[in-house]
Design a binder for these strands. Structure first.
Lengths: 102, 102
DNA sequence: ATATTATATTCACGATTTTCTATTTGTCAA
DNA sequence: TTGACAAATAGAAAATCGTGAATATAATAT
């Protein structure tokens, strides 16, 4: 589970934007077509496409093409991976320095 | 554990930047003085101050003033809160639509 | 083949973020 | 009180990000 700092930052960009958070909330109801997401968000189609790319790059969301349509859903594995990475980044395994200069 | 989308985005901004990720990794060794963090990062003092503000705003890091010095450490409670928020955002509790239009 | 529909890409622009220099504030020691 | 040091703030430059209009690509239907 070793990720570069750059990749880690990329992963959490998924949850750094209000619209992407809204998209995740919509996807919690299960897999949804892009066109349905579009109806529920006040953004244009290219903007949605842009956000879906960031979400898919983070691997927290996965896309599936079916004919003309793109279906998106939350990947429980991707979400678990993100949590693992977050834990690995915030677990404290030391006691620090007792003072600034000794 | 209900957070506005804006607040949620703010919280995860903490882990959306390479320098802040480096800072968290340093703090995993325990509480550290700002001046020590500064030695390990190739940024200026005001830039560090800026990043520490964002980290503290997310409540994943807490600061403590002692005389002239600021000591920072990871807040296990803050980190747990972030994980809870992330889970609440990515748990799937529906099965989606079977198709785009019915 | 042509038209239509769904999504992705390109480009440009404005807003936000990161970063720095300069300055200010706060704390301690002579 | 003055000087030295740590950290925060102000202001500005540069980079990144979010957005939409225009266009391209892909799939389906006629």
């Amino acid at each position: 589970m070793e990720l570069s700092d750059k990749k880690t930052a990329e992963m959490f960009k998924a949850v750094c934007d209000e619209n992407r958070i809204k998209i995740l909330k919509l996807l919690q109801g299960g897999e949804k077509c892009a066109c349905i997401l579009l109806d529920d968000l006040h953004i244009t189609q290219p903007t949605l496409s842009h956000h879906m790319k960031i979400l898919c790059d983070s691997e927290i969301v996965v896309g599936r093409k079916e004919g003309k349509w793109m279906y998106y859903s939350i990947s429980p594995e991707g979400a678990d991976r993100a949590i693992s990475v977050f834990r690995a980044l915030t677990d404290v395994h030391g006691q620090g320095d007792c003072c600034c200069k000794e």
